[in-house]
Design a protein around this nucleic acid. Structure first.
Length: 213
DNA sequence: GCGACAG
DNA sequence: ATCTTGTCGC
């Protein structure tokens, strides 16, 4: 927690970040049943066509147990290792988890952004902190995710009539731009294409690693 | 003190 | 995160 408090001031919450990124990266991690093995994946997509143009994986051991609020310490090492293996530097990182919408305002997306220096946003499937009203059913509608007086992010409907996602700023991106980027990445499914391709890749990499042992 | 709790 | 079973809808 002290590490998070120390790094938090380095977060750029203003951005606004790239309005028309050339490439966008998705990051995700898969775990073996025993919890003793993990595979982290990064996929880089052409922001216009959403085709995967680069990718990398890292297979290893979890660096930390799963503790809500300290999630980054579990996945960051492997994600950074995978990022190091990319041959391109993406214009935006789309993380599977929260950014600002965190108990100490320093979730995975903020941590990854500060450590890499790259623009980053968080897209989580479930809430961690904050209260919100249900956004209307149409894709594109959203409501503010709040905690006390502060706005931590947005509850965004990415598909008509489908459970919304939780979008928050990570680093060097405005909340407005983060919302726009997520909508651009969800032409067909609830979750961003970046998350979907990274999820598929880390699952495949994990299966391969389990087969090899 | 008790419940909630990204993945 | 992972596993299981069934149901709904394109």
């Amino acid at each position: 927690m002290a590490v998070q408090e120390e790094l938090r001031p380095l977060v750029d919450l203003v951005g606004p970040g790239p309005s028309a990124p050339a490439t966008v990266a998705g990051l995700d991690v898969a775990y073996a049943e025993g919890g003793d093995l993990l595979a982290a994946a990064v996929t880089v997509l052409d922001a216009r066509t959403l085709a995967v143009v680069d990718s990398a994986v890292d297979v290893g051991r979890p660096a930390f147990g799963y503790v809500p609020g300290l999630f980054a310490f579990r996945e960051l090492p492997a994600l950074l290792a995978a990022l190091d293996r990319l041959t391109t530097i993406p214009d935006l990182l789309v993380c599977d988890g929260h950014g600002l919408a965190h108990p100490r305002r320093f979730g995975l997306a903020c941590h990854l952004g500060v450590v890499t220096g790259l623009p980053a946003i968080g897209v989580a499937k479930t809430p961690l902190v904050g209260v919100w009203d249900q956004p209307s059913a149409e894709r594109g509608s959203w409501s503010s995710l709040r905690d006390g007086g502060e706005v931590l992010g947005r509850v965004l409907r990415t598909r008509d009539g489908v459970k919304p996602v939780f979008v928050s700023v990570g680093h060097r991106v405005s909340l407005e731009n983060a919302t726009a980027q997520v909508l651009a990445l969800t032409p067909r499914y609830r979750l961003p294409e970046t998350t979907r391709t990274a999820d598929r890749l880390c699952r495949d990499a994990l299966a391969e690693a389990e087969q090899a042992r």
